[in-house]
């Protein structure tokens, strides 16, 4: 069984780093610590459905959705500009998009803190121009800004790579059949880019809904998101069981939305959205 020997290291790796942790998470999620030791229970999940935690869940989803929509609105035109034909410095621009992604995520977010601070660069410039200063740090807007900034490339790149693959003669054919440029976009370009849009949405929404760094740094801890909640349970409260239960809920949420997205994409295959 030569094949088995080849995949064996990979299987071991998977078991140690993926299967085992998931089993552990599930184990902690369905047990609680009592005087008489560990006991099987669904209390952790019940607890999650208390209003205070549902609020956190709702806030996470809301902020992630807002960021995803903003990323889509900003990212689609950007992808179109990048993919447009006449662009001479296309590769340079694409590179400019990718370079920040090579930098550490934390550093980038810290950089925004110094930009947004009360005495930070943006306010210094505003003061210099005799404009009222902006107190944006530690607000919801700052968290959204951080998400959009960090995740925008994940929206632009998949859309871009779908757009550049669209056969230009299809656009000419549409024009030939009487479509002005808006109609060409509505009836050909956009429907053909749907798969890019969907993977863009997925790739922005998933990290946005689970982030805890952005909300802690730019939200100043005032905007507890689901990611922060999990982090707190493990690092500060020490309630691994509850932390695991939230993680499981989160994983189910992500799986469901991914399934929904891929189903939606399949339905749209070969049929226009419009």
């Amino acid at each position: 069984m030569k094949e088995n020997r080849v995949v064996a290291p990979y299987l071991i790796w998977m078991t140690i780093f993926i299967v085992l942790p998931i089993i552990l998470v599930i184990f902690f999620g369905v047990t609680i610590r009592t005087e008489s030791g560990l006991q099987l229970s669904l209390d952790n999940f019940k607890r999650f459905f208390e209003p205070i935690y549902l609020m956190v869940l709702w806030r996470s989803i809301r902020l992630a959705l807002i960021s995803t929509v903003i990323c889509l609105i900003l990212g689609y035109p950007m992808a179109m500009i990048l993919a447009s034909n006449g662009l001479k410095m296309k590769n340079t621009l694409v590179l400019l998009f990718i370079i920040p992604m090579w930098m550490n995520f934390l550093l980038r977010t810290y950089a925004w803190m110094t930009l947004l601070e009360r005495g930070g660069i943006i306010n210094t410039i505003l003061n210099f121009l005799k404009l009222p200063s902006l107190n944006i740090l530690y607000t919801e807007q700052a968290v959204i800004l951080g998400m959009v900034y960090n995740f925008l490339p994940f929206m632009v790149l998949p859309i871009y790579s779908v757009l550049i693959k669209i056969d230009k003669s299809l656009l000419e054919a549409a024009e030939d059949l009487g479509a002005d440029s808006i109609t060409v976009f509505r009836k050909v370009t956009f429907p053909l880019s749907i798969s890019g849009v969907i993977s863009g949405i997925t790739m922005v929404f998933m990290p946005a809904v689970t982030t805890f760094v952005i909300s802690r740094l730019l939200g100043g801890g005032q905007f507890t998101l689901i990611g922060n909640l999990i982090e707190q349970q493990f690092l500060f409260v020490g309630d691994w069981s509850f932390g695991s239960a939230i993680s499981i809920v989160m994983m189910i949420l992500i799986l469901v939305s991914m399934g929904f997205m891929s189903k939606y994409e399949k339905e749209n295959e070969g049929a226009g959205l419009w």
Partner: peptide
């Protein structure tokens, strides 16, 4: 092109892959 009373059959057909035959023709 979209204002010319001229239509083209392209060298590589350029049919819309996201539309079926009827929708291509009805475009």
């Amino acid at each position: 092109p979209y204002q010319r009373r001229v239509n083209t059959v392209f060298q590589k057909y350029a049919l819309f892959p996201h539309l079926n035959v009827a929708d291509n023709i009805a475009f």
